[in-house]
Design a protein around this nucleic acid. Structure first.
Lengths: 159, 159
DNA sequence: TTTTCATGTAACTCAAAATATTACATGATG
DNA sequence: CATCATGTAATATTTTGAGTTACATGAAAA
């Protein structure tokens, strides 16, 4: 199966948008994903309807965040995307006559339902500001690494 | 995404096989799924390698269970199938340079890893005998329902 | 020993779904 | 009113699970 990448993609995009602090066009945002602006618009359409972002047409238009990152959960974004399928596993028949198949599906259903509950609960517990904070940590770490390599191995650099 | 139905399918098949108590051909088993015998062989190949079933070629050959149902967990079957993908969600890039994308992926990774852990734990806790017992319950219930409808509404039957 | 039946597997086709692209409509700004 | 930007439908591409065909291998029956 081809995986659905919308959630990871749009999170990446809107965190850049939030970082940027002013309207950005679909075309600019598309560069982050190396994709077509229409793909951005399609995903953002859901977020707009959910009130997470705002779009403005015409000159100087584009996308802006409608809420602070701390007020948006992973769950909000996931739902705004139309709650795409989480699991790659399915059943051959949804309502089988065969009692054996019914028993099999019931057993799998219970396992997957439990996992889904937990997953959505986690989505609900994570805000975009948490991810932004993690990004900030990584950025600090990255800067330290750069400084360190500059201090200890400057001779590897070309002049 | 097109779902992977191998787990549900093969469980259905081997529970019928266990029920039957003697060798069954791929062709016969394929009837339960309304599919091609080769599809059965392909899935059963994994179970054979894992020692869950035995295959015999030639006249009077076919498939038989190699272990009692109580000695086989959902996890065993899932692994024998080659541990097909559980989640339909993925990332655009597996090892992104962008620190924002890294933070996004780390966050999603953690959520999905936790859900996967729980799911596999559940798979491990369920034996095929549990599913067979549920089937038996459903069968008893089904028979009662038939009796009941025969007793209360015999006039609806044709002579 | 030869025929028949059954699995084993590679190669190819088919179908469904996510993503990408094209085309054009709508609306806002300069 | 020309340009820029979103909105969205229609179509093409890509990926992957499942189905099909073809043929090899091996065992039992005739």
């Amino acid at each position: 199966m081809k995986t659905d990448n919308k959630l990871s993609s749009i999170l990446h995009v809107i965190l850049h948008l939030a970082e940027h602090n002013q309207a950005m066009t679909s075309e600019t945002l598309a560069l982050y994903l190396k994709t077509n602006p229409v793909v951005i618009r399609r995903m953002m359409a859901g977020l707009r309807q959910a009130g997470l972002v705002v779009s403005v047409k015409g000159h100087g238009g584009g996308w802006t965040m409608a809420k602070p990152l701390a007020a948006i959960s992973l769950q909000d974004v996931y739902q705004a995307l139309g709650a795409p399928r989480l699991f790659a596993q399915g059943y051959r028949q949804d309502a089988p006559q065969c009692l054996i198949e019914q028993a099999v599906n019931a057993s799998l259903d219970s396992a997957f339902a439990e996992a889904e509950r937990q997953l959505l609960q986690k989505f609900n517990a994570v805000n975009l500001s948490d991810i932004a904070a993690d990004f900030e940590l990584r950025r600090q770490q990255h800067l330290l690494t750069l400084e360190h390599s500059a201090a200890t191995a400057p001779q590897t650099k070309e002049e």
